[in-house]
Design a protein around this nucleic acid. Sequence first.
DNA 1: TTTTTCTTTCAGAATAAATTGAAAGTTGAG
DNA 2: CTCAACTTTCAATTTATTCTGAAAGAAAAA
Lengths: 166, 166
Amino acid sequence: MELVEARKQFVAAWGSFGSNWGINRTMAQIHALLMVTTKPLAADEIMQELTISRGNANMNIRELINWGLVERVVVSGERREFFAAEKDIWKVARIIVRERKKRELEPMMRFLESISAVEGAEADVATFEKTISDIRRFGQQADQAMETMLKADENWLLGTLLKLMR
Amino acid sequence: MELVEARKQFVAAWGSFGSNWGINRTMAQIHALLMVTTKPLAADEIMQELTISRGNANMNIRELINWGLVERVVVSGERREFFAAEKDIWKVARIIVRERKKRELEPMMRFLESISAVEGAEADVATFEKTISDIRRFGQQADQAMETMLKADENWLLGTLLKLMR
DNA sequence: TTTTTCTTTCAGAATAAATTGAAAGTTGAG
DNA sequence: CTCAACTTTCAATTTATTCTGAAAGAAAAA
């Protein structure tokens, strides 16, 4: 397969994959494009490659930088800013896990704690409290697994899961 | 906190949590509602509790049934269908892992394989092939880890069943 | 069979999310 | 300082997704 074609397909696939996981399509596409590109790209090149507007490119690049997945690169002799993606897929995975844990799991856990005790004596109260406490326990294990992953190397998943499942 | 209030908050939170992960808000809310309810609910009760239309309720219940997260329950003496959610959070997690692996990870892996070799000799070709192969390796490990989790759970289930039978 | 009760479907409406593009803002060069 | 090159912002628009509700379908009850 031709590089240009393969790259186009990869960028498109990564975009739709991302949007299944709550990540904006364009953001995932920009990230994919930068992942398979050797040299850093300027905003104009990204706009052209993905046929998106300046505003859209700017907003999504900024968001990728927020996540720590992309960084600004100074190219000597150039006025424009250039952008490059983190290419180590394990680092990428760790960044995503760390961010989503911080942004979603942790707030959810705090929330569950806040509603873990309810008043009343009906059967539904017992069901409610059991469900919430089961979810909390599950969440704590997930949290712990992620924490382990963030600290460990590339073989974390197998090791951790095996331990959890024992 | 009052049960009714806590339940309302939980359902709302679970809904917005789900929509961060590519799951339709209403679907997540229905699942949450059924998780904290002792008795199976009829479509009308779900509609009323979540103030959603009949069509919306029907479509999302069907989707939950497709996923295997909710099942129809026959209540004797009742004409209507009732619905109950799987309440074991580990089973829920296992179902979600299995389904998303099948629906997303596996197709993505097949796709990556199909574009793993490209023609050309530029530096970009090397970058492209390395990125794709790194992602594939990562995906294989994730796949393997999920497989381990799914198997461990099955063994656990089998063990429980064996115990029950003796 | 006919009626009643409940479920399913789906075109159109409503809502939410993403995108555009032009104007305003910034920054370095001359 | 002024200009030109580039970046950022954001109101308006477009696109995508979700939801509604009425009509049609199905099946038990009468």
